[in-house]
Design a protein around this nucleic acid. Sequence first.
DNA 1: CTGAAAGCGCTTACAG
DNA 2: CTGAAAGCGCTTACAG
Lengths: 330, 330
Amino acid sequence: MRVTIAEVARRARVSKTTVSRVLNNKSDVDAATAVRVREVIAATGYIPSAGAVSLAKGRTRLVGVLVPALSPPGIGEVLQGVADVVEASDHSLLLSTTNRGADSLERFTRQVRAHAFDGLLLLDPPAAVTDNSALRDSDLPVVVIDGARAPFPSVAGDDAAGAAAVARHFLSRNRRRVAVVTGPGDRATARLAGFRSVLGEAGVPFADDRVAEAAFTAGSGRSAVRRLVASGLVFDAVFACDDVVAAGVLIGLREAGRAVPDDVAVAGFGDLPLSAFTQPPLTTVRRPLRALGEAAARRLLGKLLGDAGETPLTGPTVLPTDLVVRASAP
Amino acid sequence: MRVTIAEVARRARVSKTTVSRVLNNKSDVDAATAVRVREVIAATGYIPSAGAVSLAKGRTRLVGVLVPALSPPGIGEVLQGVADVVEASDHSLLLSTTNRGADSLERFTRQVRAHAFDGLLLLDPPAAVTDNSALRDSDLPVVVIDGARAPFPSVAGDDAAGAAAVARHFLSRNRRRVAVVTGPGDRATARLAGFRSVLGEAGVPFADDRVAEAAFTAGSGRSAVRRLVASGLVFDAVFACDDVVAAGVLIGLREAGRAVPDDVAVAGFGDLPLSAFTQPPLTTVRRPLRALGEAAARRLLGKLLGDAGETPLTGPTVLPTDLVVRASAP
DNA sequence: CTGAAAGCGCTTACAG
DNA sequence: CTGAAAGCGCTTACAG
């Protein structure tokens, strides 16, 4: 038999109103009464029904998180940062994916309309999500992680600066004949741009024949670097837009008989768990995944909890990235 | 202005009761009336409030998932399997971690008592969770993933069989002087036992001096194998209880001047993303992570949806593991 | 086939 | 300091 507020009130010989007041720490309750009520609560193990409270208060204490999928590397780190902050603020995480295409979007729209959560975190959202009219029309607080999508505030790592650090690292080691294996999407584009800007400033030649396209897989990185080799291009350093791609580049170079790092230095992006175990281990850019999740959650909760102060919930927040130097590009 | 069932009823000139009947697809509604109601629903974009529905029905359509942490490799895969099934069944995922110790457990207890979800999935739960009295006292349907914890039904991979497959693989390649780097916990124990059983049947000597202890880190695997080398033990194969540990073993052997696989074959466990990129790539045991999540979610939802049939929600379900042969132990 | 009323378990003015 | 009543937005017997 589930114990309700009515039961607690009966046992403590007060009204439900008074029990509610004690529960919510309202000040105007007689001390002795409060003690009595608390005793009953403790004795019965009473906990208010989450559903009833949220219906009455109009707030669910739920934070929605929408992710493209859960299996890609790095997602877990971001989510852990989110979870730590959300849980510490006495909220819970309602996790959804867009892994199932149109059906996922339909579900998402319903959740927004059903007021299933008080605020929403969007991890690397597709345009179909940020353009969603149910979302646009709602006054739901939203923070985008890892991708800027107007008109929503966002939190992202400084990929361009990370890529620029790689370029400076190459130049400082006198690797001036650089090649890039890039990928599809905004992410890779920003990295390529950051990398390129440093070369431009340094007056290092960097034409389009030094760029090969790849998807975000090792096999794709491997064949991209093979194409570079086959093209006759002379290069002593390769920057890959992603560590998995870089791992493929390593394999491709080995197959082509180029020694890393002696003949060619290689750097990746992301600092995945595997990057420390490639042969040689990868020089790469570490993204502040956990901090990204924490910062986004903090901004959202600040809004939900009505912190009118400090960080207004608008505009982008950019978190720094770090160059991690390992043997592939010492 | 949020549109409610009352508003829909008013516009469709029917009672809330009738709207509710249409919403829930009750059969006894006049066809024309139903059409009219549906038109109003479509025109207003009305979606029932999730909170109100769950309070009235006594069901939240939420599935709780408790995980130790989100960053370890493999968790995301399991969660993806869970999410796919849960979302396809028109439920949502309430995700919590025990990452914050006692506070996490306290929160968990509150959620159980507050009826925050209709059913619960426990991923590799600590005893503190499965012994929790709020959980024991509740009649909440529970399924444990990746760890058997009476009295709850469970879904797990057949680790012992996977380890046995490794042992048979070693023996089939005539590697009979085997060593093991094991780890703490039930998981590693089961693997060691499965491995050992095959050796026993084959009459291959395997004393305790062939076992080194490690934690679940590469550094720990590296020093464990160094100890084996330093002990003067002669071995031509190493089975590590985990791929990260095996990656460390690879490093330790290289440092000790032992060639893999020529001098020593190495196998790990888990088939992590990094395992394909070590040098040489790791022979290992693939765990059915996604399928684990799917199977657990299906069992739980079967119970929630009242499928009185097929899979009763009791006892363990065991899913097969696969040997993945790569260059470290061809 | 349809609706008025009670109920789910809380909170919140309002009145005292 | 305290309680009766209304309300949050639905669903569900019950009666017609």
